[in-house]
Nucleic acid binder design. Sequence first.
DNA 1: CGGCCAGTTGACACCGTTCAACCGCTGTGG
DNA 2: CCACAGCGGTTGAACGGTGTCAACTGGCCG
Lengths: 250, 250
Amino acid sequence: MTLAMSQPPAGRTAPAGDPVLNRFHRLCDLDPGEIEILRRRDDVLDVRGGASLTDSHLPSPRFLISGWAAWVKLSSPEAGQRRQIISFYLPGEPLAVCARPHPLSSGAIVALTPARTCDARQAAQRLTQSPDSGLARAFRVSACLAEAYLVNQTIRLGGLTAYQRLCHLFLEFLERMTGAGLGAQRSFPFALTQEMLGEALSLSTVHVNRTLQELRRDGLVEFAGGLAILPDPERAALACGYQAQHAALW
Amino acid sequence: MTLAMSQPPAGRTAPAGDPVLNRFHRLCDLDPGEIEILRRRDDVLDVRGGASLTDSHLPSPRFLISGWAAWVKLSSPEAGQRRQIISFYLPGEPLAVCARPHPLSSGAIVALTPARTCDARQAAQRLTQSPDSGLARAFRVSACLAEAYLVNQTIRLGGLTAYQRLCHLFLEFLERMTGAGLGAQRSFPFALTQEMLGEALSLSTVHVNRTLQELRRDGLVEFAGGLAILPDPERAALACGYQAQHAALW
DNA sequence: CGGCCAGTTGACACCGTTCAACCGCTGTGG
DNA sequence: CCACAGCGGTTGAACGGTGTCAACTGGCCG
């Protein structure tokens, strides 16, 4: 993690170490006033890993400043009562900004690691008040990315083997973390358990474990010092058919 | 189908038999001018089953007037070159209205049955020109539903058995068809092949076949005269944990 | 009549699950 | 300081849902 944060996001005057600002500034150009809005830290809230974010402050729009969260659902048949991760939220990403009327049809947003959030209402406000501003456009692109990640999840579950699913997911994590200025070209801070990976990829913990060993053996994914490392992202992308979302030209 | 179309959508003056108008009018109240916009049929286009809709007129926004379509992707590993259905488009639903900059990151929209579409630009225009109008709100709710259906797909692939997946999908089809004024309380016109169901649910055609037999044996799904029939939707919902999207209060 | 497509059936293989045990680390309390 | 508990990770063995291969049926259409 220290390694990641010590190298500035290459260009821009954006203050390093702020994933929210880094992320939005890369999506669209922002004027100084908008940058100031994104740097505000109103109503900062820290939660333990495992805590629910929907109970506390959501569904008002908030930024995830640090830590990882996920939208989870519990499978209704009382058989097993398995928990399913629908989508992840990574540092720098907005929570529940969907400019839509409904408050997450079902399920909850849960912190997977210790996490910190802050209010995003002032930033989200610009969506309606000045829809053509850079910040508003950045929000819309962000929502578009969120949908693309949801499609990625469908592709993983529907079209890939366990080996490919894990590879695909780590490539997406790498893309999203570097997009927030966290992590380096081939690594990023990572603290999820194998059980959580299984809940997202619909695999048993045991099989996640065995498959991660295969990925390590093949030199596609490593773990060291709280980092996940993808030594050869291109070869990994080839192994699972991953397509970077940046390809879409905004 | 005739049965379905002969019963008006309960109240309203909406002319029966128009799935586009039926669907949007149920999502939000529309004024006479907006109803007139939705009844317009500009640039009507008929395509054969199997034809691509992205090649011809998309990505300009269009309505699917009749027939079924799907967003498909081809799995990149040349092994098998399996086709995966990411999401379905049912009669009355908009195609590619996502008020977003990108043109469907990858893949194509394909007609699964013979289908007819028409231009929706004039209707979509109101999203930006009068964001508070009923029609604009209906579009946003529609987009929200589309996302909910995408989540449904994730739930099916990640959390359900083959038996439950099919059950879940047919319940969603029933909900969406009745929402467009097509189909009755427990049935709707249906013309997909078992192969297409397999492509959507990530199941082999053989296994779709066997599982459908189980569903028939258990009295959950039947097929007759071009209709799919769910004799006991409540029991079916119990069998797979299906949650209707109407529950979310708009 | 012949071909094609969707549906159907049987036998077998495999990927991933389940159950169970064990390891190593960390935090905590006696 | 050590004992213990708890959690995440690891390993082995057996089971089972689903895929694959192959063959056959029946209806539609040229």
